Amino acid sequence: MTTPTTGRKILTVDEFIELVVEWTEANQAAIAAAWANPGEGWEDWIRIEITRFIQGRFLAADLGRERHVYTDTSKQCDFVLNGQVAPDPARRVVVEIKTQSQGRLAHFRGDFKQDLEKLDELAGEYRYAQRLAIGFFFTKDAGAATGKLFSPVGARNLAEFLNDYHRVYFSSKYKPWRIEPDEMADDLVSRAGSPKLAQERDDVFELGMVWWRLDPLATAEEEEEEEEEDDTNSSVESSDESDAKQSDSTSTRTKRGVKRKRADDDSDDPDDSDGSGGSDSSDDESDAMSDDESDDGETASPPPTKKPKTGNTRQG
């Protein structure tokens, strides 16, 4: 075992991937034994073994104590690299590990995609972190009961799916075979449908690892821009509200000024010397009553004689 190096604390994404590949190559037999057990238990096992391997190499490496990083607090990630030793959240890496259980190669694609979608649900400061999804699968999925190889059609579908991602194949005969996205040869994909799949040289790779690196969900620059935009919108809204209030206040003062002017004009009218404020409503009512009584053709008592008024005097 390599003597631990205490100086290394921060692990980059690339360094972490290289360490995982190194551990996988050296532990294929142990992985095969864990994979043969039923259930999903070997996902926890592989996380623990990777932790032991990396900390055996770099004792001070921080692989994450806090794993509740999602909006749904019931969910956990597998690793948070540099979670405690990196003050800058942008230097942290949230890692998800997906392992294919025996007999579930056909479901591996969907399981791996679920981890990619899960990484879109990071909360709080973990939204600044880099994201990494890693999956382990077997190119020969031997069923415990039948002992048959995975179907050629399934192998072709898996090869086409994996073509979008970084992957590496492991074998006891050959060194790890690394393939970049979109670098799968067309003839290899076509040969995956051959009935002689088990005899093909490329098929000796039984264990595979796929990974995909995702950018942070947010950056400090984007957050600052959003805050500035929010402040600008708030300032505009506040200004609009202030202008509206000022306009309402001006309108109210104008209306009050008009009312006061009308009141002053009425009080200054020389025809209002009787104190009636210029209102002729009583005279109008009297005139109207006189007209109605004279038009109905009946004898009625004559209206009382009205004393002349100074100012506007209306005749009945």
Score class of each variant (00 low, 15 high):
109 R>D: 00
269 D>M: 09
259 K>R: 11
299 T>M: 04
233 N>S: 11
219 T>W: 00
72 D>E: 14
117 E>F: 05
58 F>S: 05
216 P>H: 04
307 K>C: 02
228 E>N: 14
246 Q>A: 15
28 Q>H: 01
180 E>C: 07
168 V>H: 00
224 E>P: 01
279 S>D: 13
14 D>S: 13
202 D>Q: 08
276 S>Y: 01
16 F>M: 05
233 N>E: 10
3 T>L: 06
64 G>Y: 03
240 D>I: 15
254 T>S: 02
288 A>H: 04
72 D>T: 14
309 K>P: 01
185 A>T: 12
176 P>C: 12
265 D>E: 10
49 E>A: 12
120 D>G: 13
277 G>I: 08
46 I>D: 00
55 Q>V: 15
125 E>G: 03
236 V>A: 06
86 A>F: 02
294 S>R: 11
158 L>A: 11
292 D>Q: 13
20 V>N: 01
255 K>Y: 01
152 P>H: 12
249 S>W: 02
118 K>P: 00
89 P>F: 10
83 G>K: 05
275 G>W: 06
21 V>G: 00
171 S>E: 02
214 L>D: 02
71 T>I: 09
240 D>R: 15
288 A>P: 00
28 Q>W: 00
270 P>Q: 09
174 Y>R: 15
262 R>D: 01
269 D>L: 11
265 D>A: 15
182 D>G: 07
145 A>Q: 08
197 L>M: 13
314 R>T: 14
87 P>Q: 11
49 E>L: 05
292 D>N: 06
155 A>M: 06
232 T>A: 13
9 K>P: 00
102 Q>H: 04
260 R>M: 09
28 Q>K: 14
159 A>M: 13
59 L>S: 10
6 T>C: 02
183 E>R: 15
117 E>I: 13
230 D>K: 14
20 V>A: 03
32 A>H: 05
36 A>V: 08
20 V>Q: 00
52 R>L: 08
282 S>V: 13
157 N>G: 10
271 D>I: 07
175 K>C: 02
63 L>V: 10
191 R>G: 03
128 Y>L: 09
277 G>Q: 09
68 H>M: 10
211 W>H: 09
189 V>K: 07
173 K>S: 06
111 D>R: 12
241 E>Q: 15
141 D>Q: 14
271 D>L: 12
160 E>T: 15
183 E>C: 13
23 W>I: 06
157 N>P: 00
313 T>N: 08
207 L>Y: 04
